[in-house]
């Protein structure tokens, strides 16, 4: 397992912020997972050593928290909200459209590793549902025809240039989200 200098130095800065090292676990895991895409057994042991706990203390987090991974998601990970407010606005249809157009079932990674879809619980933006996230960005009101257009742009890698779906957050972003989410295995 190898981590970039940048990640290593972020980890070094992070740990002393906590009164107890173990508290930094989730944040350190996030940093490692952002770079490697998933937490391997090696990574588990490395993090455990860093935080002076046993590897199982890290493993039990990876296996509990929905956002922590033992195998990576696709290069572009698509989160679709499943919960009632979004469902009332058509999110089940949205998920189906995305599954068809991206060629992968929810909960899975496309064979070429390009896309993965996660049909997941409330994303806390229910007033603008159905809500879809691509990587770290939120897109709102993705339903029906809109969903098809959205999926097409996503497949053509033109989504970022489209203003139509960009959520209100976009205008607030001071620095565009870094594209560090998931790298190739």
């Amino acid at each position: 397992m190898e981590l970039s200098e940048e990640t290593l130095s972020k980890i070094e800065d992070l740990i002393p912020k906590y009164p107890e090292k173990r508290s930094a676990a989730l944040m350190v895991i996030h940093l490692v997972q952002d770079e490697l895409g998933a937490i391997s057994d090696d990574a588990c042991s490395w993090i455990a050593e860093k935080l002076e706990v046993e590897p199982i203390n890290i493993k039990e987090l990876i296996t509990f928290y929905p956002m922590l991974r033992e195998t990576p998601w696709g290069k572009k990970h698509v989160r679709v909200c499943r919960t009632l407010p979004c469902a009332l606005r058509g999110s089940y249809g949205t998920c189906k459209v995305l599954e068809e157009k991206l060629g992968v079932k929810e909960g899975h990674v496309r064979e070429d590793g390009e896309f993965s879809i996660e049909f997941m619980e409330c994303l806390a933006d229910c007033g603008e549902g159905p809500v879809v996230m691509v990587g770290e960005e939120t897109f709102e009101n993705i339903e029906g025809k809109n969903a098809e257009k959205f999926a097409d742009l996503l497949v053509q890698e033109k989504l970022n240039s489209s203003k139509d779906f960009v959520s209100y957050e976009k205008s607030l972003v001071t620095k565009p989200p870094s594209s560090k989410t998931t790298k190739k295995k």
Binding site: K17, Y18, S23, L26, M27, I29, H30, L61, F64, Y65, P66, M67, L68, M120, E121
Partner: peptide, 12 residues
């Protein structure tokens, strides 16, 4: 008093 942002990991 230090203020630290701590991120969860997807559990309600």
């Amino acid at each position: 008093c230090d203020l630290v942002v701590h991120r969860g990991a997807g559990a309600y």
